[in-house]
Design a protein around this nucleic acid. Sequence first.
DNA 1: TTGTAAGCGTTATCAA
DNA 2: TTGATAACGCTTACAA
Lengths: 341, 341
Amino acid sequence: MKTNKRPTIRDVAAEAGVSKSLVSMVFSSDEGVSQARRDKVMAAAKKLGFTPNVWARSLSSGLSNFIAILVVDLHNPLFTEVADHARKALLERGHQTFMTAAIISMQNGKRVLEKSTVQTLLDLKPRGILVIGDLPDKASLKQVPEEVPIVIATTVHSGLKRAIVLRIDEDEAMRQIVQHLVEKGHQTVSYVGPDDSDVSTARISSFKKAMDLYKLTPHMQFCDRTEEAGYSAAKIALQGEPQPTALICFNDVVAFGVQEAVESFQKAGGGQVAVTGFDNTYISALSRISLTSIEQEKVAIAMRAAEILSADESVWREAEGKNLLLVPRLVIRDSSNFVQP
Amino acid sequence: MKTNKRPTIRDVAAEAGVSKSLVSMVFSSDEGVSQARRDKVMAAAKKLGFTPNVWARSLSSGLSNFIAILVVDLHNPLFTEVADHARKALLERGHQTFMTAAIISMQNGKRVLEKSTVQTLLDLKPRGILVIGDLPDKASLKQVPEEVPIVIATTVHSGLKRAIVLRIDEDEAMRQIVQHLVEKGHQTVSYVGPDDSDVSTARISSFKKAMDLYKLTPHMQFCDRTEEAGYSAAKIALQGEPQPTALICFNDVVAFGVQEAVESFQKAGGGQVAVTGFDNTYISALSRISLTSIEQEKVAIAMRAAEILSADESVWREAEGKNLLLVPRLVIRDSSNFVQP
DNA sequence: TTGTAAGCGTTATCAA
DNA sequence: TTGATAACGCTTACAA
């Protein structure tokens, strides 16, 4: 019960022969305390190994120095990488972070965010909140006090008026992909991916826009978001009429399956087929995969998020409710880097 | 300042016309309060949308219901997957979790864990601590109060007497790999990987033991833990005399590079070379990679961890200081599934 | 069974 | 510049 107790402000006060308030002042601001007392307190603190209890501090003051990071899916490398970059950037700006994975439960067949997740987060009175990924139910963020900025990263839109959304320009991403394919001589291009969420429908609409821009007819083959689904969908797409010479995939995982289908298609005597992915996960860079993909600018997004969340209120207030679009970057690799005859 | 304030125990008390303590009792235990008052309090709480502030609770009581998860490296899918499984298992047992990524800084060329990471964690008075990954500096965990159990997962040993280490049996893992290779007709086997940490040296020693068991001479080629490093190391290894027909890699990432080198070796007229990895990341299952690998039993480890951390003190005390070994499982895929002539 | 009061580790207000 | 004293939201003896 009382083993290893960390020393408190009280212990330091006793040791230094001053009041608790004095100790508090020394540790919280750098003025209003005489140098003599300050030294005394610091010496006592050092001797006892005292460091302030951050949480008690925020309970008392009602504000804190922490940013809460809510990662929607720990299995998605895109999210964990953004989380890690953001964490580092925030740290450099002097902010501690702590993370929670979203707890998603099913309710009437719909994905719902467990309220306790957000509430536990808020009890800590974070200075700001960073949501990474596509939260199924943004309403739960409505509980967030109005003076706490919310940044939502790598998702399409929030349904939450005050949120600051940080994402790449999907239209531009698709435009880059289609342009690249057109330049390589492709005319018949098909999209392979799901059609069941904010992000996926947005991506499809961007695809159509981009195809339109280059006067091409958009073909589509819907499937789930797994390698196997991509494989099957590509098999079907490649039997289409006209037969596509390029397949644009919803994300890298789907693309891996599509690549597989393309390979067996070629072994069976079919022609070359270009494949592109989305997210530029580090797997796509593996030389056996070498998948052309869209870089979501993970680092830039993390930096921007850190900037906003550590800025003064007057600064982030301006961004409130806005969609901040970053410019995506197409990373061209073997899977599409050949000229279509 | 006072926008959207969450209702407190006091508000509920006022609404229900009882004292704060009564409300507290209703929410913390299920006895000692009359049904009438209980109903009244619950009704008031519901009306106000009250839920207890977990952290204030733990500040006050000195104990809590949540488990702190310390993930050493967010970029390593092995770690984030274990973290996610553990989080879910813990939740099912009624424990909230929250995570921090280790903050590693360099000090005199050595990796050191930032003390603040652990301290911030401890201020929250977690019920238990789960460390996932190879912490560079276990000494920092010495601050953890003696009555808080520490489970360290997926790493070799702790240097911390009280920690409960949860990992696969590395000797057995290597034995399985070597046995598999021997059965396929391999006689000349080389290890490719780093030699710079607890985990890597342990793995090497297991490799030697296993080779000894099958009366084979252990060859080794050291390299960093990246794909590129694996590639270069394999190139060198394949020029060795005697030339290895199988390469055992430190982990999957290194193996990906090694596979690459093997492929170009074969194109240049070399014979078939078996490759094995370690960790069984989901990438190794991609059909274009199809890498034989050791499953670290991520789910089992997470379950075991959850079990221990949510058990009564008398239970986990027994495991204290022990190494709990799980049985690894070799997942055989194309990269090694052929007979060596 | 219920309420009162003290305390968890800190900050904040207000006299001194 | 300093030190009581009252919060913060909750738990927990101890009294009633």
